[in-house]
Design a protein around this nucleic acid. Sequence first.
DNA 1: CTAAAACCTCACATCAATGTGAGAGGCAAG
DNA 2: CTTGCCTCTCACATTGATGTGAGGTTTTAG
Lengths: 125, 125
Amino acid sequence: MRIGELSRRTGASVRLLRYYEEKGLIGSTRSDSGQRHFAEDAVPRVEFVRRLLAAGATSRAIAEMMPCFDTPLEENFDSAMERLARERLRITSGIEDLLRARKALDALMDTAREHRARLPENRAG
Amino acid sequence: MRIGELSRRTGASVRLLRYYEEKGLIGSTRSDSGQRHFAEDAVPRVEFVRRLLAAGATSRAIAEMMPCFDTPLEENFDSAMERLARERLRITSGIEDLLRARKALDALMDTAREHRARLPENRAG
DNA sequence: CTAAAACCTCACATCAATGTGAGAGGCAAG
DNA sequence: CTTGCCTCTCACATTGATGTGAGGTTTTAG
């Protein structure tokens, strides 16, 4: 498929798909006139990429994982696996950060509500 | 305390503390010569700010929450509470994003390991 | 054949938190 | 008073994913 269709099917802008290609996150073949052509499996691949990017992964990090996505015969397969593991750690600690932040928000909301409840003029509000 | 001490006690660079002030995240009084002076409660406040920033909140969003941190008498108290709630949603959906990403990583690691196990020449490795 | 739609490359813009450096003034201790 | 450390403002740099627009070629549909 051409880049427009891939864009429609993944929700990524055409510009971004070119960017992903430039960064080595997806591959494409070129027609004689230079237009990109993508295989079917580019769709799940882009979805994977977007999921990781949304989780704060760097395009560089994702690129380094890609050997795992392709074939286990790659030379850099081991380092790709290692990269996966490292990114998993990063994500887990990200989750912990978010949980802590949410707890801080909850605490603030609680005290704020409590403060308000203590105000005489606001008792009815 | 002056800015250097606040920096030491919070781990935020002096530059950042000035930035936080500029964005309305922390307040300070000024000495005659223009030096910033911070109260004790600036410390937990900076910690709160950093936690939220680490969780991907915008300085603008944090600024809008600050009335809750101060006094329930603020006029923008209600919108501040609303901002808190909105940020809480954002964080929760961020957590879900991370969980999904982690699941995708796990799935990829599983298939990769499986592929490798299937390779005859790698049986021993 | 022609017009519209899709594609190409190149390159500059943006946002937000942070770094960094210059140049100048403030403050405490010897 | 001087030395050394702290602070001030101003302002430009960076990083990384994305937007946007220009100017030109290709593909597709009528």
